[in-house]
Amino acid sequence: MPDLERLSAVAGTVAVVGVGETDYGADHARSRRGEPIGDGYAHAATALRRALADCGLTKDDVDGLVCGPTLASERLGEVLGIDTRWADQADAVQAVVKATAAIHAGLAETVALVYGTDQRAAGVAYGGEGAAGGERHLSYTYFSPWGLTSQGALYALLANRYLAETGMTERELGGVAVAQRAFARLHPHAVMRAPLTIEDHLAQPYICEPLRRTDYCLINDGGVALVLTTAERARRLDRPFVLVRGIGRSDHNRDATSLRPRLEEFYRPAQRAAAEQVYAMAGLGPQDVDVLQIYDSFSVHVPLALEGFGFCGDGEAGKLISSGDLGPGGRLPVNTAGGHLSGSYMQGWGHQAEVVRQLRAEAGDRQVPGARIGQYVSDVAGKVTSIVYEGVAR
């Protein structure tokens, strides 16, 4: 069981001091024209250069590195010119968890978290015979004999059951895509900035019923980097920074490859266990969250997280979404850079950069006024993780 006393000792001791991203929209347009824009390592290098400039540090200050799949830490270290004492590989949210643990334990003082991908330019497939991850036996590839070779098909099953169980309508679910597009229109580097109404959304044909095109994430290239260090060093930099206040995780693997956790329980047991841990460590609750980022490879992730983490009751997410409260000017802004559906698909990495920008009041036209507490929620394949961040003004 998690030791909340020991976890509480970590709260507020590690800070995010720098963030950097590539120019998603411009790169996407260049890629569509067939122009070369570099590989994943090139995007990662651009993002880190910008993150270091953001916090006033240099690569010589970095003594830890966490790289995001599918990059190799050894090669990435060579490309970046960083010779670290400690390195690892992890997805977006686990990268923050691992770096926080390493800094608190004294394994490193300043850790760069770096991700880059050329998934669109390289033609990465997320379905079909050559589905990415099939060689690692990801859960959705077990169902290829029945034609379920894509994650979209599995999330369509989940969405159908969720709608049937809760009474949520397709119009309400479509409100997720509409709200996130509204934020993307305020983000100069978002990929999708054209207007999107609920009528536009519902007029689209199904890709896999009940999911339409704008229920699906984008596939684009880019890079994201964050720089984490001790809270003490962050204060010496004399710039705005963001503290890691809470971490929660709970896996839901029992019968995971049979789909039961997502089809019957919507990951709620794991979400509630992770919520209990993250809020206890942070000394906060969902009512304290000013801005929320939710991993959204498909729109249905959003209502599941809203209910699982206590932002509304079971079966009430549809009403919350249709109220308009998740979009610009709403009381619970979600995925304020446009999320994976309209902003950029960086496998959750962009969500971390966005929550930092919001808590430093640097998000421009999409800024949530007075944002001080931000939360990220991820429930990929039953591995539920959440981080609570707190902004610190300088």
Rank of each mutant, 00 (worst) to 15 (best):
Y155P: 04
D215H: 06
A179F: 04
Q367G: 08
R239P: 02
L173W: 02
S144H: 13
D379K: 15
R236C: 12
L228G: 01
A194E: 15
T13E: 12
P286D: 02
A371W: 01
H43Q: 11
P36V: 11
S378Y: 05
H187A: 12
V176H: 00
Q94I: 08
F183N: 06
I294F: 05
F309Y: 13
H187T: 15
R239W: 07
A45N: 04
G339D: 00
L48E: 00
A337T: 12
R6P: 01
R239K: 13
D290F: 05
R245V: 05
T117R: 01
R30F: 08
G364C: 11
A305W: 00
E209F: 13
V114Q: 00
D215A: 13
G364R: 11
D88R: 00
G329T: 03
A101H: 11
L65R: 00
E390A: 12
S139L: 15
N220Y: 01
V224A: 03
I198K: 09
H351N: 13
Y115I: 13
V191N: 02
S8I: 06
R236L: 14
A231R: 10
D61N: 09
D288F: 04
L57F: 02
T149M: 10
P36A: 13
D255Y: 12
L157R: 07
Y345T: 11
P145H: 09
A363N: 03
P261Q: 04
G12Q: 03
A153D: 03
L359S: 04
A156Q: 05
G391H: 01
R212L: 06
I387S: 01
Y115P: 06
A256L: 15
A44N: 01
G152M: 06
P369C: 08
A234R: 06
D215N: 08
E165C: 13
R136C: 08
R233Y: 05
A90Q: 05
L158D: 02
N253L: 15
R49Q: 12
G68S: 10
A11T: 10
F311E: 00
E129A: 13
H43A: 08
Q277H: 09
I198V: 14
S258T: 15
Q204I: 11
G12S: 09
T22C: 10
M1Y: 13
T84R: 00
M281Q: 09
A353K: 07
D61H: 12
I219N: 07
A231M: 09
H189R: 15
I373F: 06
A179C: 14
G34L: 03
Y279P: 04
Q180L: 05
A361I: 09
R236T: 14
